[in-house]
């Protein structure tokens, strides 16, 4: 999940040897387990925040992720870095949480905050890229639009467009086939386009 270049199979270059920590944690070494939690928490919380279902506490979700990690630690084969394995568990935990939620009803112009409306106005006004200062408001607007999609569609858009992962990476993380990833992304984009069109038409009216 984390593609930072200094993240290796050994963990962070200056950090502890995570592979050794996993081995020790498997033998009930609590200090090794604590180290594993401390070292991977920033990555897990980033994933949880990116996919955070409404009203779900990010800390509770992170705790659920780690409980799954330690419950299944014996199944970790060691073929991929532990960070990848944990990130897959984190994404799937968020996805399961999303599935338990109901999709929000329609998004109306009146539901938007002032900043969201400003982003839409900028989109309508010119064909150029949005200003960097509008990125946070854009993200918030996209989050509101994503809340209208089904969990798989929301997940695929977040991974593909917001985290800029490849179809192959998404396939690996979610366990879906590549055609399935593409179909879900296509359907999600179709819905987002319709939603954006409705919002812009409401704005013009």
């Amino acid at each position: 999940m984390d593609r930072s270049p200094n993240m290796t199979a050994r963990g962070l270059d200056d950090g502890p040897d995570l592979a050794a920590c996993v081995e020790r944690a498997r033998h009930n070494d609590e200090e090794a387990a604590r180290t594993l939690v401390r070292e991977t928490y920033p990555m897990v919380i980033r994933i949880v925040r990116a996919h955070l279902p409404r009203r779900a506490s990010e800390e509770d979700l992170a705790q659920t992720v780690y409980m799954k990690v330690f419950a299944n630690l014996n199944q970790y084969s060691g073929r991929v870095p532990i960070q990848n394995w944990i990130s897959r568990i984190a994404v799937n935990t968020c996805y399961n949480q999303l599935q338990a939620e109901r999709i929000r009803p329609e998004l109306r112009w009146s539901d938007l905050a002032e900043e969201d409306a400003f982003v839409l106005e900028s989109l309508a006004a010119s064909e150029g890229e949005l200003a960097p200062s509008e990125s946070i408001a854009s993200r918030e607007l996209v989050e509101k639009m994503l809340a209208r999609l089904s969990p798989p569609e929301r997940l695929v858009v977040t991974l593909l467009h917001l985290e800029e992962k490849s179809v192959a990476e998404i396939s690996r993380i979610t366990g879906w086939t590549r055609p399935m990833v593409k179909i879900r992304a296509f359907r999600a984009r179709l819905k987002l386009r319709k939603l954006l069109k409705t919002l812009m038409e409401e704005h013009r009216a």
Partner: peptide, 9 residues
């Protein structure tokens, strides 16, 4: 454009 801007947040 919206998605690209959101990704840069």
């Amino acid at each position: 454009r919206l998605l690209r801007s959101a990704a840069q947040a």
